[in-house]
Simulated scan of single mutants.
Amino acid sequence: MTDSSEPTLAAGSQATRELAVAEWLLVAAHNADEAVTDWRNTGLAVLECGGVFAALRIPALLVVAAARTSHPGDVAEYLAGALHGGPVIVSANGDQYYALVPPSTAKRKLPHGIECLTRSSLLFVPRPDLTDPNQHAHTSYWAVPMDGPGALCQPDAVLQVATVGRFRHTQQGGDQ
């Protein structure tokens, strides 16, 4: 007889993690009930940066150059490793990546082309379970989902990815 409890426990653990992450993210909503409704109806909620998290916006061309691939699954795998599992959102049209970082990141000097979204900046944040670009076409999704409440990217790791991407993009003859 096989033990069928393992998949149930794993699925339960993932659902528990996603619920905890959702509750933590909702702290950044102007109206949590409205955000939950938006997640349910569209998969996206508008959350304010600068309170519990900030977001570093990185052009996709830099992320793709750093990862040396444009395949979404391979880019996600690269980011998960390079950012030590820190959470990253891909924009609906795929032209921007948003690494969630501590709000204190706003005080840092950033390289050209990288912007820190802080207080009064709004971000479309996907429901924590939206992680597959093939299933969720035409909407933002998590390239790297949050491991848990408050589990953010290390700003230095994000900036290193952007710097490597800029170098590789320039070496390939891209704009500076």
Results as ranks from 00 to 15, higher is better:
residue 1 M to I: 09
residue 1 M to N: 05
residue 2 T to M: 12
residue 4 S to E: 07
residue 5 S to Y: 11
residue 6 E to P: 05
residue 6 E to M: 13
residue 9 L to H: 10
residue 10 A to Y: 09
residue 13 S to V: 07
residue 15 A to N: 14
residue 15 A to Y: 10
residue 17 R to I: 12
residue 19 L to I: 01
residue 20 A to L: 15
residue 21 V to N: 13
residue 22 A to P: 06
residue 24 W to K: 08
residue 25 L to N: 11
residue 26 L to Y: 09
residue 27 V to R: 14
residue 27 V to L: 10
residue 29 A to T: 13
residue 30 H to N: 14
residue 30 H to K: 13
residue 31 N to F: 12
residue 32 A to M: 10
residue 35 A to E: 11
residue 39 W to V: 10
residue 39 W to N: 04
residue 40 R to I: 06
residue 47 L to W: 12
residue 48 E to N: 05
residue 51 G to V: 09
residue 51 G to H: 06
residue 54 A to L: 05
residue 55 A to W: 01
residue 56 L to E: 07
residue 57 R to D: 03
residue 57 R to N: 00
residue 59 P to V: 04
residue 60 A to M: 07
residue 60 A to E: 09
residue 65 A to W: 01
residue 68 R to Q: 12
residue 76 A to E: 04
residue 76 A to T: 06
residue 77 E to L: 10
residue 78 Y to G: 02
residue 80 A to P: 02
residue 85 G to Y: 11
residue 86 G to N: 10
residue 86 G to Y: 04
residue 88 V to K: 05
residue 93 N to K: 12
residue 93 N to T: 11
residue 102 P to Q: 03
residue 103 P to A: 04
residue 104 S to F: 04
residue 105 T to S: 11
residue 105 T to K: 02
residue 107 K to D: 13
residue 107 K to W: 03
residue 108 R to N: 12
residue 111 P to I: 01
residue 112 H to I: 00
residue 112 H to Y: 01
residue 113 G to T: 01
residue 114 I to H: 05
residue 115 E to D: 13
residue 116 C to W: 00
residue 117 L to F: 02
residue 118 T to R: 02
residue 121 S to Y: 14
residue 122 L to K: 07
residue 124 F to R: 06
residue 126 P to A: 07
residue 126 P to T: 03
residue 131 T to E: 11
residue 133 P to Y: 08
residue 136 H to G: 06
residue 136 H to R: 10
residue 138 H to V: 12
residue 139 T to R: 14
residue 141 Y to V: 05
residue 142 W to A: 00
residue 147 D to R: 15
residue 149 P to Y: 10
residue 150 G to D: 05
residue 150 G to Q: 06
residue 157 A to P: 08
residue 157 A to N: 12
residue 159 L to C: 02
residue 160 Q to G: 00
residue 161 V to A: 09
residue 162 A to L: 00
residue 164 V to H: 03
residue 166 R to H: 03
residue 170 T to A: 06
residue 170 T to S: 12
residue 173 G to S: 04
residue 174 G to N: 09
